[in-house]
Write a protein that binds this DNA or RNA. Structure first.
Length: 282
DNA sequence: AGCCTATGCGAAC
DNA sequence: TTCGCCTAGGCTG
């Protein structure tokens, strides 16, 4: 379930559970065994996220770079560690100590888990666009890129070199909230429109960190009655193809864009038409 | 049980 | 553009 808010929340939770503690590091699966051995018994300083990347800081400036990919997981458990089941690439264990509970965390299914140095980490950060979750992040570089290309905005929002941390759910929902069609060329957006979208992310994504889910529906658009107890958040269009738009009732549409299914309301997000220059046109 | 899909992304073709 | 990663939930049967 990883968009930027998931990784930020994970970094905070890992820091809370293991920060400042000497940890046992292992790789039950074996693919990270040599690296785990180097880190085993050292102090875990804390975790940080950047976009969808996660960094674990250990003493002596050793860093573990993790990317969960589409279905990686890194759940934290309280209590004594149970035997690892399945393919656990990395396990952190902290023993009980002065008031703190024992805890452990198992990493599975990640596309990336590597012991790196600070140069590598800097390189990853250099390749990322501004992250709305990073305090003080400057949206200007993102606007520079968006305003200069014909590439569709629905593709640009997913490009981590343009914006870091936005994934398929935030893409779909942000475009709906701003009534923008996913295929609209970047350079046809007005600066004010982009800045409004950025500001929306600056508010939506921290809310996602707090709740650990993505909710984007404004109160006035929430369907009446109790909220379904599912794990997913309240969304306008994501994976709602064929269902009625929460605002206008039109059937939500879907189409693959940037390799992923994108979703939009054809009425609330009309296809962009450039302003006609001649009254003779059409 | 088996199949499909998925909040991602890099490598291979 | 397609594949691989190799998890997990939901649906079908």
């Amino acid at each position: 379930m990883p968009e930027g808010h998931t990784l930020r929340r994970l970094a905070e939770d890992l820091s809370g559970a293991f920060g400042g503690r000497v940890v046992a590091v292992s790789s039950p699966q074996g693919r990270f065994a040599e690296e785990a051995q180097l880190l085993d018994g050292t102090e875990f300083l804390g975790a940080d996220s950047a976009g969808k990347h996660l960094f674990l800081d250990f003493e002596d400036e050793r860093v573990v770079h993790i990317h969960l990919g589409l279905y990686g997981k890194f759940p934290i458990h309280r209590g004594e560690a149970r035997p690892a089941v399945g393919q656990v690439r990395l396990r952190l264990v902290a023993a009980a100590e002065d008031g703190r509970e024992p805890a452990y965390a198992d990493l599975r299914g990640a596309t990336q888990c590597a012991l790196v140095d600070s140069d590598h980490r800097a390189g990853v950060l250099d390749r990322l666009g501004p992250d709305p979750l990073r305090a003080g992040a400057d949206p200007a570089p993102a606007w520079q890129r968006i305003s200069r290309t014909h590439r569709p905005i629905g593709e640009l929002l997913m490009d981590q070199q343009v914006l870091a941390g936005v994934g398929n759910v935030y893409r779909a929902e942000l475009l709906f909230r701003h009534r923008i069609h996913p295929l609209r060329p970047g350079k046809t957006l007005r600066r004010g429109q982009f800045l409004a979208m950025w500001q929306d992310l600056v508010e939506l994504m921290p809310a996602g960190v707090r709740s650990n889910r993505i909710d984007t529906v404004r109160p006035e658009h929430l369907p009446p009655g109790p909220r379904p107890a599912g794990r997913g958040g309240d969304v306008y269009v994501y994976r709602r193809q064929g269902l009625p738009c929460l605002v206008c009732g039109t059937a939500i549409r879907t189409q693959v864009l940037a390799g992923r299914n994108s979703f939009w309301c054809p009425k609330c997000q009309p296809v962009y038409r450039s302003r006609a220059r001649s009254s003779a046109a059409s």
